[in-house]
Amino acid sequence: MRMTARSPQRQGNRRKIHIGPWVITVAVVVALTAARWIAAHPALGITLTALVAAAAITVAMRARPALRARKGGALTTVDPHRLKPDQFEHFIADLCRRDKCRNVRVVGGAGDLAADVLYTDPHGRRGLIQAKRYQRGNSVGSEHVQMVNGTYRDAHHCQHAAIVTTSHFTRAAAEFGHQVGIRLVDDHRLTDWINGQRSAAPWN
């Protein structure tokens, strides 16, 4: 029977992990001790396990509330007013993906030139969204509309742009947005968009 030697290259690619016998001994002792304690205190063991599981779930949910938005139909369960500004940007991006937008990117940050989300809408047009996660009493002013109007075409090469907020717009902002064609999505229209009304989407 002919034996084929392994190539040195393949042997060199394998990383060997050595676990000392004392590590295995300690792990076995800890496992046995935990098992005996749980067997002696079954009620406490079940309670402790439930508490650990509940704590893990709570931490996971608080880490990123918008994570639920990636589950498709769960978008309507997210309250955008409870999101942090960066989470709100990702939430808006999730809404765009849900409604069949392509090439969706979150680009907000320092030097973003008034863009938070870039995307290609279902009609094949490139769009820009500036996300304003404001408290309801804090209005979005016309200066933000002016910034978007000044950058979405030349800086970002988009065909249309919108500002989406959890609040509302000042009268001056609404008038200027209508004049230059910037779509303004206030709290009410955002709620409609979240609930699946396609006509409320920023590109419609």
Rank of each mutant, 00 (worst) to 15 (best):
P80N: 07
K100D: 14
G12K: 10
A5V: 07
S139Y: 10
S199M: 12
V148Y: 00
W193A: 04
W203A: 00
S199E: 15
G73H: 08
V106A: 09
V28I: 15
Q159C: 01
G108A: 09
H160K: 08
G12Y: 06
T47I: 11
N204S: 08
A110Y: 10
R171W: 14
A40C: 05
Q87I: 02
Q130N: 06
R105I: 02
A5Q: 08
R6F: 00
I129E: 03
T47A: 14
A50S: 11
R62W: 09
D112S: 11
N103W: 10
W37S: 09
R198I: 13
G124D: 05
R153S: 14
T47Y: 02
R68G: 08
A35Y: 14
F176T: 05
L184S: 00
T76R: 14
A34I: 15
R6N: 10
P85C: 04
H157I: 14
V106T: 10
N13A: 14
N103T: 08
L83W: 01
K132D: 08
G108Q: 04
D112G: 06
R153L: 13
A5H: 06
Y119N: 02
T191R: 13
S167Y: 09
H156F: 11
A53W: 04
A115G: 12
L51E: 07
V185L: 03
A63S: 12
T165Q: 02
Q135N: 11
L118E: 12
A200Q: 08
D192S: 15
Q179R: 05
Q146Y: 05
W193N: 05
A54L: 12
R136W: 08
P85T: 09
I46S: 10
N13S: 13
W193T: 06
G177E: 03
R68W: 02
A174I: 05
A53G: 07
Q179G: 02
G196W: 12
V107I: 13
R14G: 02
G124I: 07
N13F: 09
T58Q: 10
Y119F: 15
K71Y: 02
